[in-house]
Amino acid sequence: MTMSNRRPGLTDRLGARFTARGIEPVVPFIGAGSLSLLAGALAFQYLGGLAPCVMCLWQRWPHLVVVLVAGAVTALAPARRVQGAALAVMALALLVTAGLGLYHVGVEQGWVTASAACTISGASPDGATDIAALRAAIAGAPRAACTDIAWSLLGISMAGWNALISVLLAGIAAGGARHIFKR
């Protein structure tokens, strides 16, 4: 079967639908990528029983920004220039999480020192106030040390995979933004 007479696949049909609505297909693609990374992290946490460390939690916030921006653009279908700006924001957020992931890898490998926020405290509630009890409960929640590698694949930790995939997605988002602004 040659390329000219091949049947359109799912991605072709989805891309055509987004394009017909005035949405750059790369926007929901990037959003789906970040959503997948978030879902994977939550699955490891809640289904796999791997408690996240503080830096693991930090890496999730930029992905949430990407998902929200992509969702808003997909739902509202704004002008192309706005979509280009949204892609630039998504690329920046993805570079932030990639940077946090690289820093986390450095901490895991002992190349850099962990921040004070990465220390595990065992604070216990003294029952002074409701806020104090809440803070103690949060501090006492299961949390891993930032220096521990809870899971790895091919010698790369979750933080490393987050950094690699986030850089790839950031490149695609930046390329999409550049494409829009060059027109």
Rank of each mutant, 00 (worst) to 15 (best):
C118N: 13
A159Y: 05
I165Y: 02
L57F: 09
R143Y: 14
R21I: 05
W111D: 06
E108V: 15
G9E: 02
T11Y: 01
A91P: 09
A128Y: 07
S157R: 09
A145M: 05
G160F: 04
S4E: 15
S36F: 02
G160Q: 14
I23E: 01
S36W: 03
V67C: 08
G101D: 09
V26A: 01
G49L: 03
L35D: 04
A133Q: 11
L37R: 09
V105F: 03
L38S: 12
S36N: 06
G31W: 00
G176N: 10
F181C: 07
L102T: 08
A145L: 10
P78A: 13
M55F: 08
M3H: 12
R13F: 02
R143W: 00
A75V: 06
A41K: 12
R135D: 15
P28C: 04
Q45A: 11
H63W: 11
R80I: 05
S121Y: 06
A150R: 15
A144M: 04
L76F: 05
S166V: 01
N5H: 14
Q45L: 13
G155K: 06
F44Y: 12
L102F: 07
G122C: 10
Y103S: 05
V167K: 00
S4H: 10
M3A: 14
G9H: 04
M1G: 13
A20R: 11
L94V: 06
V26H: 01
D130K: 14
S124M: 11
E108C: 08
L169A: 05
P52D: 04
L134F: 15
A75S: 07
V69Q: 03
V27K: 00
N162V: 03
C146Q: 11
R183C: 14
A132W: 07
G175S: 12
S36Q: 07
